[in-house]
Design a protein around this nucleic acid. Structure first.
Lengths: 245, 245
DNA sequence: CGTCACACAAAGGTGTTACCTTTGTAAATA
DNA sequence: TATTTACAAAGGTAACACCTTTGTGTGACG
């Protein structure tokens, strides 16, 4: 039964359950199943053309993300949004890929406003010489690329810049947000929430952050980063598309 | 074989895999298996006296937390710490229960410093009348309990206070940290990282936060909360036990 | 004799199936 | 309305066949 979809799944992912997991995760976070809805393993395993074992493993992961709760005699009950592990990278990716991406980008940007200034301060205190130098390099590179309008390369440099700070601050909780923030940066370019050409203010602020970190000026780095990221937040919240979401 | 441990596991948890998961999670986050070590399903299922299916489901969850990576012909390879999903509540709980709790408390407190001020600001903007009132009530209650030296009740009020702020700010990313922060608060009392009697400064600051939120003064709430949580951080980092960890 | 390449075999995760147990839920009954 | 009963669906076990990976052994070539 369902040979076609089985083969498709196998081809798509070396591990079959990965494909099923993504599909279901997208559906649930996308709101295609109202909270309280009960799915059954039986039904799902037929739908995806996989065995019970595979379906159960997928279910366990979904359960561990609090997207569903497994109840005997009932099935997998879709949980309300407020129970989801919204900080998990997979949940974030699914939500960024589904409807409500604008919303997701806003809440994540608020998280950035909270975290990145302190990460910058931490980096100013703890970063190695290599990192300090690299940050300055990246900042000037971003200016060049930004002014040249090379958005892709700009994005790459931007991601590296912020990732570097999150790793250099020596707090693993902050570092754990690296991937998330990378996706936010990528996501907002993709969805046209960025001006065609980065604002000069943003470029200046990246420079300031890099300089302060290089100089070991924690407070300066924190302040500059706060301005930077608040600028981003304001830019997003005044963009029509975001406002509409 | 291993009848005893099987029955123990069954008795402990209605779902058997929960017990196994906790045990293994504690071991790995506790550093009992060096990164790169390969465990095998075969071995583990014998050790815990569970079937292969159950062991595989546990493994999938561990894998989804990036505590292990499953490789054919090799087994479950324990991942280095920097790959772990350190923001996941379970990982946090395991690490708080294992060695390195002091470390964990410090990194989490830094996270609090980042997040809670903005949560307070958000609450000042968005909280309902009920919440504003409740916060004031809690603040005065904390003063009474703190001065009376009733640490348990104080802790409960403290947890509710901070949880309320994280929920009222209407950013689900912040709200998702509620449980984590509750455990941090509980953890630091348990591990003697708190003075016998809460400092008056802290009590004053809770009051100030509540008042500012009640008044809709976002900036005031943010500042007060920042002072509060920085005070906590400094208190922890100067405590001998924490410094030793 | 030493080294490199290729072939083969074993180990262990991946996926499937069948079957039994346990337990909520809901329907039927008193 | 309260209680029993039946059943559906998850929880758990067992036994397979299969596919990848990897280590090792053998042979060819230098």
């Amino acid at each position: 039964m369902a040979e076609a979809s089985r083969d498709a799944a196998r081809a798509a992912a070396p591990v079959m359950h990965g494909a099923v997991l993504d599909a279901l995760g997208l559906e649930i976070t996308g709101g295609q199943h109202a909270p309280g809805t009960a799915l059954t393993l039986e039904h799902l395993q037929q739908r995806f053309g996989v065995s019970r074992t595979v379906m159960r493993e997928v279910m366990r992961i979904l359960e561990s993300l609090n997207l569903v709760a497994s109840r005997r005699r009932v099935g997998l009950v879709v949980q309300p949004m407020h129970r989801w592990r919204v900080l998990d990278p997979r949940v974030i990716r699914w939500r960024l890929d589904g409807p409500g991406r604008a919303d997701q980008l806003r809440t994540l940007t608020d998280l950035r406003v909270a975290v990145e200034p302190l990460a910058a301060a931490g980096a100013a205190r703890h970063a190695t010489a290599d990192v300090r130098e690299r940050l300055c390099t990246l900042a000037t590179r971003m200016r060049q690329l930004g002014e040249a309008g090379e958005l892709d390369a700009f994005l790459a440099a931007d991601v590296e810049f912020h990732a570097l700070l999150l790793q250099a601050c020596l707090n693993e909780m902050f570092t754990a947000l690296t991937g998330v923030i990378a996706e936010v940066l990528a996501g907002r370019t993709e969805h046209g929430l960025m001006p065609k050409c980065p604002r000069p203010v943003a470029l200046d602020l990246h420079d300031r952050v890099a300089d302060c970190v290089a100089a070991g000026d924690a407070w300066g780095a924190e302040t500059a980063m706060r301005e930077l990221v608040e600028e981003v937040r304001d830019a997003i919240s005044t963009t029509p598309e975001a406002a509409a979401g």
